[in-house]
């Protein structure tokens, strides 16, 4: 069973942008697309740990600001010829609020 916790209003994250959420085990980046979908991923590129939240968001992908790896927001997988995987977490928007699954974030510590 999911344990959704309210993080912030959707407007707090710019369209085609991202903000960070601090967790005991590092930062999670919350992305908002042009179509107002939200995605939660580890804020570290599989390449050189670049801060994905600082990248350019396009479609349902983000480009890492350090070396332009493109990461799918839906799957966390590196696109194109690059190989790598970023952890993704359940996130949703309900009533204009961004919700994350606290259980999932907890499991992160164990995983």
């Amino acid at each position: 069973m999911s344990n959704w916790i309210d993080i912030a209003a959707l407007e707090e994250v710019p369209q085609r942008g991202a903000r960070l959420v601090k967790t005991p085990h590092g930062c999670v980046a919350i992305f908002r697309t042009a179509g107002d979908e939200v995605f939660a991923l580890d804020n570290a590129c599989p390449h050189k740990n670049g801060p994905l939240a600082d990248g350019i968001v396009h479609g349902k992908a983000v480009t890492c600001p350090l070396h332009n790896w493109v990461i799918s927001l839906e799957t966390g997988a590196a696109q194109g010829a690059d190989k790598g995987q970023v952890a993704t977490y359940p996130a949703k928007v309900t009533g204009g609020r961004i919700l994350l699954d606290a259980d999932f974030l907890q499991q992160r510590a164990v995983a």
Binding site: I7, R19, T23, A102, L105
Partner: peptide
């Protein structure tokens, strides 16, 4: 300054 600070801090809740 919002973009520069975290959206939320879950470190306490998680603890």
């Amino acid at each position: 300054s919002a973009p520069y600070i975290p959206l939320a801090n879950l470190t306490l809740e998680a603890a």
